[in-house]
Amino acid sequence: MSDSEQSEEQNREFKTDEDFDPEFFRNIERKSKIFSCIQCGTCTASCESGKWTALKTRNIIRKVCLGDLTVLKDPDIWLCTTCFACWERCPRNIQPTGVIMELRNYATKLGNISPNHRAVVGYLGNTGHAVPINDITKERRKELGLDELPPTLFKYKTEGEGKELENFKEFMFDLPPVKEEKKPKKKEEKK
């Protein structure tokens, strides 16, 4: 792509058929329901996050209907707190919360996942917990008459034939490698 073509793409406000891939989401769950969306805005109005953040649920559903894949790079899909308010109220039963969580699955496969979330996956693999134990809590557990360590996977990490925690780390939540984000840097340089 030549520089002039690239700048045209960046500047233009309109989109063409080539900007959409209506086939991309052909295996998405609830597909037919998503297409029955009437864009009434009940989801956005219900959204506790969207009141304060850039998350606009209705627009996300619209992008899925159009096959607009920019939705998978959109950080806004990670601002849903999964409170299910839109799911409960959608008059077409589209279950937007479920759609957003599924979009995040697609985004994850493309490597669009935040460093903090990678860290949480790391904790799970190393300790079996998303929030691992710390020394102060061990002390407090003892003070309250509880075992120092709860009887979870972490306590048994070195026991058992299969060493289950290792299996857990090996087979679960395999993430794509961290992307080298060059383009945004260039932009910054230009600016």
């Binding site: 699955n105 979330h117 996956v121 679960m172 939540f173 993430l175």
Partner: peptide, 20 residues
């Protein structure tokens, strides 16, 4: 429940990979 793990948390882990 011996050897139980994280549930795993519905918001984060379901978002990464529903099957896992």
């Amino acid at each position: 429940m011996e050897r139980a793990s994280c549930c795993p948390a519905p918001g984060v882990f379901r978002s990464f990979n529903k099957v896992d």
